[in-house]
Design a protein around this nucleic acid. Sequence first.
RNA 1: GCGCGCUUAGCUCAGUGGUAGAGCACAUCCUUCACACGGAUGGGGUCGCAGGUUCGAACCCUGCAGCGCGCACCA
Length: 902
Amino acid sequence: MSELSKAYEPQAVEAKWYAAWLEGKCFEADPASEKPAYSIVIPPPNVTGILHLGHVLNNAIQDILARRARQTGHEVLWLPGTDHAGIATQAKVERELRENEKLTRRDLGRDEFLKRVWAFKDKHGNIIINQLKRLGCSCDWSRERFTMDEAYTRWVSHVFVELFKKGLIYRGKRMVNWCPVSLTALSDEEVIMTPRKSKLYFMKYELTDAPGEFLEISTTRPETLMGDVAVAVNPKDPRYAKYVGRTVFRPFPHAAIPVIADDHVDIEFGTGALKITPAHDKADFEIGLKHGLEIIDTLTPDGHMNCPECPDLHGLERFVARKKAAAKLEEMGLLIKVEEYDNNVGYSERGGVPIEPRISMQWFLKYPKVQEAADAVANGDIKFRPERWAKTYAHWMENLQDWCISRQLWWGHQIPVWYRKDKLDALKNAESLDMQDFASGDIHVGVEAPADGDNWVRDEDVMDTWFSSWLWPFATMAGVGEETATLKKFYPTSDLVTGPDIIFFWVARMIMAGFEFKDELPFRNVYFTAIIRDLKGRKMSKSLGNSPDPIDLMEKYGADGLRFGLMRIAPVGSDVRFDESQVEEGRNFANKLYNACRFRQMAGEIEYPESESDDDHEVVGMANCFHLDILAKLDQLTVDLDKAYGDYRFGEIAARLYEFLWNEFCDKFLEAVKGDLRETATPEARAVTLSVFDTVMSRYLQLLHPYMPHVTEELSQRMGFLNEDEFLMQADLPEEPVLAGLLAEDIATEQGKAAAIYETAGRLRNLKAEYNVASRRDVKFIIKGAVDWFDAERPILALLTGAGEIEVDSAYAAPKGTPVSLTPVGEIYLPLEGLIDVEAERVRLTREIGKLEQELARSEAKLGNESFVARAPAEVVAQEKARLEEWRGKLKQLGEMLSGLG
RNA sequence: GCGCGCUUAGCUCAGUGGUAGAGCACAUCCUUCACACGGAUGGGGUCGCAGGUUCGAACCCUGCAGCGCGCACCA
């Protein structure tokens, strides 16, 4: 054992042990193991992403689960990896290209561009992985996966082909969410509804058959006016019944368009007349279909006006065009008014701009195994924690729309569909393609390219990133059609830990994929983490600058400190507000632990007076009430943690670990037994105390290890708690309670004594503080009417209270005004020349009596209530009675003391 | 609009029927030989509001308010 510095310095220690664990292959899962399996697959972070606090919380929880599972005798696989994150990654590379070389991806061409993305991935791809390592994550890095690995890509293609063969995947021209920045379609889940202050424009269209008569219409999007093909009113609306079937003039380009009736129109909203633009609104599109209306697309993919008939608007950006269109209406005298209006606008999750409903050719998936997936959660085969998310899940599962899986990107898994070159134009422009088209031999759908490749052109689109992520739990363990030992042993996985924000994106889809492709649920428990917000309750984001860099926090407080601090405040249910002071607490806690061990180390080796044995039970035979108390509390902690882990109550576990070490072990136990380590103590006392310390600490370090892996490993090693070449992280938790051989009754008696002494110490310190002698160590207390076992504990009580001596004197006649306290072990006086102050003591006693009387009155009232006595459980009544008696006795004593003052 | 959640000490949060809790912050004292990233003591809350159930409610029920989050085609 080497010298320990005064304060714990985590940085070097953490790096050292992480390297040692890797070296020792501690994280590698052995499929051949006899042990029961425990597995988690990591929610793969974006390959080029960087760690944020959400990742820290999420991965700390997974690491805790993994480490705990190892300790409880499981063979653990925590499978790590990264996600190619199509849009996000491609956008980063495109931005770099634009800024550095003033080039677009089209300037480079697909192959060259993809080379760049791979290069970018190679350069940045390890950042987040290294950050996870810094955090202490015990992932099996030998099994690290990437969603665009060759084998994984094969899975994605295979799944596409299979679903296609089942008729679940189809291609068609549909209204989709279009991102004008990323220039791709998006799924409904990638659209974020955001409240916006916008304007509602009221305008009027002239009736073609009645010049001078107008139909008033309201819209938020006057720039789409050129795409209008009708005006709709509600058939039940009496105001407009006379217009239905007639035509009005669309102002520009000037044309007559019909007035139609449709239930969809809300009579109450605006003027109650709705302009119909099938090309640029989902609802209008539906109405257009119903009424057989023309579709006029007036926008380019990147959100500019495409309407050569209106040269003054043509080519304008859509929001510029909106103002221009409104101005134009005003010029024409057709704009009635503009109102401020709050509405929700769909934003592109990645592009950050309003999405554009757009008709385009896309691939869609009808979700498979919906019923099985919904049932699995409803019937508890898959358990959500907190449970309420199951409802959100169920609701989504009931309202599934087909999933738009194609993306007009280059970075991703390309759709495994080829078209015959000579038929390409016809196939590409078809409104939709049905099975007949595919049966024609002009189209090839397969994992492999057609043999005569030169005659074919592959579909240019790639798949939604989530179309690869949903295969993650099994595609990471085995290739297509492969039965690896890993898959056999570790699939289905045990727990999934993720944020509730991706319950639809990922969790729900994985469940469906699990049933579809493996005939089994992919995991048994899903733990939804809290979302970390700043102190003002805002979401952490780069643009707000309110997101602390976890690496900085780890530099400052250590990975263990960060983990512990975060876990302590991470509630089960809702969001968590991040406060750096919590992390500071985590560091302080590590330091406290470290110093407790330092204290032990300074005491040196145990020299057993009689035998060489260091058997726990032999030691227990010599133990006093403080030893037994802490050992019993350790056993209790062990039991409590077991239960809390079963309920995934991570915050409670952290709180219990904290409280045990700080309050029970350091503040009480260590202070009580300090005397045993002094020169004056007997060798027996010293041996038993050191032995109990070691027993408790070695076990405690193990219990704490999942939360603070580095410092616990360090201390266990340094303190010599482990055998040679053994790691704490690999040691099984002992199954036997420390006090297994003792009677519960005896333990309770001893614990009662310890509790009485601790409480007494508190009262005496209080007394000292009240009389401003808190720091004096030479004061003498005199105890009167001590309980029979008290004498043996005298020196310890003196130690705990910082008193010179505690004298037992049953005949003590206190001078008037001597400060006194009623304690569980007797009446204790603090006689000190300057302190004897009758008035002060009268005030103090009166105050105490006042408090007591209040309690007493409440208790008497309660027991005086017949209904309470008759209906409350017997033990509650008995408890209340006991309390009443105790207070009465005390009150009487205090009363006597007060009257004794004269 | 529908659904879900939250509201407890200045702050962050525990607390699912029996005398309101922790950590931080605050005040006073202590650099005493594990730790000032520390020790001791103390002040501070009619548990969002209003009803109801109960012998008894922070906790169960109803309504209301405020905040947050989902879902939804109100242009």
